[in-house]
Amino acid sequence: MLTRRTFIKSTLAANIALAAPASLALTAIKNTQDEQALLIFADENSSNASLFSKQFSEAEAHISLDIGLHFDTFNAFCRENPNGWVSGITRDSDFFVLQQLASQHGYHTAYSATHTVSNNTLAHQVTSSAEKAPLLARALGNAGDKWPTWLADNLATLQNTTAADNTANSRTQSLSQAGDNHVLVSWLLIPSNSTQS
């Protein structure tokens, strides 16, 4: 079983440090350790995404807006880490692009969820397996505004051996206002030949 701790204690394999405009930038953090390689993407313009990424490393690197600038990083990670996982909290468009790239490396989407804030209500729509989707939706709801931390703590539980295709929703009160991007997506991409559980 993978735990957050195994991710966090891992050594930082590489930092990506490219200058970038502050607005709409992405943060990418790459952690690698013996059992598991992990690549995290976070929309730098979102406090929720930053909260998520901070759970994995103290080091942060800023990469500019355009998701195309991440292709080399992403492809190299997938090539060099056949069992690596890629996760993130990003805008939907960035997730879509990474999802398409990942499929070319034999990855599938083990989990994804949209997170929206409206009128002080935080809504999660989770796509996962039939068994996990309602559990994850409820857990995210219970986590309140700390849901990104909960996701990071429980990343290992998000995996599915096949593509996620069942949805479940939860709603909870939120103290925060709508985020910069309004619709954020959290997600986990894993190789389809992954045998870990």
């Binding site: 960035d94 309004h182 619709v183």
Partner: peptide, 16 residues
């Protein structure tokens, strides 16, 4: 110069 920025359009409404 290639880029992917135009995909940002897909965030205009959710589920782009």
């Amino acid at each position: 110069k290639p880029n992917m920025t135009e995909f940002s359009l897909l965030n205009w409404v959710g589920g782009g």
